[in-house]
Design a protein around this nucleic acid. Structure first.
Length: 217
DNA sequence: ACATTAAGTGATT
DNA sequence: AATCACTTAATGT
């Protein structure tokens, strides 16, 4: 076994040994392709053929939809231990991706080919559990996102977005511009600036140029 | 000093 | 809540 494989084994055991049985981890090492991807790169794009599904070992991936050039919406984040089960079902049917996944914090990821993940559903009980749980979680997050759009005022939606961001970056000083927030929430920069100012007056956040400090979360 | 980019403001829909 | 038109502030060269 070469060094990259043993490295992969270490990481897999570290993060997944509590949910996956040993044989499954061995199988993953056998067929998985390990990759490191730097922040800012695309993991998957809309319309792209899905031949593999990603298993995230570290880092963060932002999953979003995009209608036109300048209309986008952030849906949810993938972190360590996550996979995109939506892409999994897509994968089995050999459909194209309906999402875009962009790397937000450098990721280490294992790509698993479609052919095997189907078999594993029967072969490994923990895999089956993992996929079902993951699909369920993603669905809940999606419903949450829809609720946000339908019922929540932008200010609340934005606060939720910021807190989420703090959680995944482990940093309460966010490196972000008003424009970027507006893009993620499919809103406009002017409105975001005004809402942020309100949040600042409520002492929930503090603003610097290119930075937002979240006080309470 | 100047140009560029981020953020703020008032009016209008 | 969005858009327009414009100002002001911060930053890079």
């Amino acid at each position: 076994m070469n060094s990259q494989n043993s490295n992969l084994q270490d990481k897999l055991s570290e993060y997944y040994s509590s949910i996956f049985e040993k044989e499954l981890i061995d199988d993953i090492i056998k067929v998985g392709r390990f990759e490191s991807i730097e922040s800012g790169n695309l993991l998957i794009d809309i319309g792209q053929d899905l031949t593999h599904i990603p298993l995230i070992l570290s880092g963060v991936v932002k999953i979003m939809r995009q209608e036109n050039e300048d209309e986008e919406l952030a849906l949810y984040y993938l972190e360590r231990g996550d996979t995109c089960a939506i892409s999994f079902v897509n994968c089995i049917d050999h459909k194209r991706s309906i999402f875009r996944g962009i790397v937000e914090k450098d990721v280490e990821v294992v790509f698993l080919p479609v052919e095997v993940i189907d078999d594993w559903l029967q072969k490994h009980k923990t895999w089956r559990r993992f996929i079902i749980d993951s699909y369920h979680l993603r669905l809940l997050e999606m419903v949450d996102a829809i609720d946000g759009l339908a019922f929540m005022k932008l200010k609340n939606r934005m606060l939720k977005y910021l807190i989420e961001k703090v959680k995944i970056t482990q940093e309460n000083i966010l490196d972000i511009t008003h424009q970027e927030i507006a893009n993620d929430l499919n809103s406009s920069r002017v409105v975001v600036s005004r809402m942020l100012k309100q949040l600042e007056q409520e002492n929930k956040i503090e603003m610097r140029r290119n930075k937002i400090i979240i006080e309470s979360f």
